[in-house]
C-alpha cells in the first residue's frame, strides 16, 4: 500500500470525524442553551436538576458516559446507534460545559438594558430574544471555541463504538501495514489541520458578527 493510498483512507475517515464533531457540537449548543435558559427561570427544583446535570456531565470521563450509553442502555432494551451514543455522551458533556459559559455570559448583559426594554413595554420573551441572547452569544465566543475544540479532540473515541472515523481507519491501517509511526504522525497532522480550519471558520463568523465594545469575558 502506497502512502498516498493510506492518506486517502485517512481523509475518508476525516469525513466521519467532522460528522461526529459537528453532530456533538450541535447537541452541545442546543442542550447548553436550553440549560442556561432554564436556569434563568430560577425554579428551585429545576435548578437542582440542572446543577446535577452539569456537575455529573462535567465530572464523569467521556468514555464512561459513552460506554454507559452504548453498552448500558441496550441492557434495559434501549439500543443506541454509535452516532447517537456520541451525541448523548460527548454532545451532552459539551452542553454541560457550554451551559456554564452561557450562564456567565448572561450575567454580563447590562441589567439597565433589560430595564429599558421593560420600560418600553417589551415582553420577557422579546427581551430574551432581542437583547439577552444576541449579547450572550457574543460574550460566549471564546468559551464556545474552547468547547468546540474539546469536542474535536475527543471525537476519536467514536472509534471505540465502531464509527469509521480517522482513528479507526488508522488503527486498522497500522495493523495491516506495520507503519504505525508514519500513520499516526499523519493522523496527528490531519487533526491539527481540521482544528486550524475549524478555528479559522469560527473566528471568521465571530468577526462577521463582531460589534465594537464587546469585551470578551
Amino acid at each position: 500500500m502506497t502512502f498516498l493510498e493510506i492518506i486517502s483512507i485517512l481523509v475518508r475517515g476525516a469525513g466521519f470525524t467532522i460528522l461526529v464533531t459537528f453532530a456533538c457540537i450541535l447537541t452541545g449548543l442546543f442542550s447548553g442553551l436550553l440549560a442556561a435558559l432554564l436556569f434563568r427561570l430560577d425554579i428551585r427544583p429545576l435548578n437542582w436538576l440542572l446543577h446535577a446535570f452539569t456537575y455529573a456531565f462535567r465530572g464523569i470521563p467521556l468514555l464512561v458516559v459513552l460506554f454507559l450509553v452504548f453498552f448500558g442502555l441496550p441492557s434495559i432494551g434501549l439500543p443506541i446507534p454509535p452516532l447517537l451514543a456520541m451525541m448523548l455522551s460527548l454532545g451532552l458533556i459539551c452542553g454541560a460545559y457550554l451551559s456554564e459559559v452561557f450562564r456567565g455570559a448572561l450575567k454580563a448583559v447590562d441589567p439597565n438594558e433589560i430595564m429599558v426594554a421593560q420600560s418600553m413595554g417589551m415582553h420577557r420573551i422579546q427581551i430574551l430574544i432581542s437583547i439577552e441572547i444576541p449579547q450572550m452569544l457574543r460574550f460566549s465566543a471564546p468559551g464556545m471555541l474552547n468547547e468546540f475544540t474539546t469536542v474535536l479532540k475527543y471525537s476519536p473515541f467514536a472509534y471505540t463504538v465502531g464509527v469509521p472515523e480517522i482513528l479507526k481507519e488508522a488503527t486498522s491501517l497500522a495493523l495491516t501495514t506495520l507503519r504505525g509511526m508514519e500513520i499516526y504522525l499523519a493522523v496527528g497532522i490531519l487533526y491539527f489541520l481540521i482544528y486550524k480550519i475549524m478555528m479559522e471558520m469560527f473566528l471568521w463568523v465571530e468577526r462577521h458578527y463582531a460589534i465594537p465594545g464587546f469585551k470578551q469575558i
Binding site: A170, G180, K196
Partner: peptide, 22 residues
C-alpha cells in the same frame, strides 16, 4: 498550539504502536 489542537490519544497510539517499529 499543536498539543491543544490534536487529540492526545493519537500521540499515545503513535508511541504505543509506532515506536516498536524503531
Amino acid at each position: 498550539s499543536f498539543f491543544i489542537g490534536t487529540p492526545l490519544i493519537v500521540l499515545l497510539f503513535l508511541m504505543y504502536y509506532g515506536l516498536p517499529q524503531w
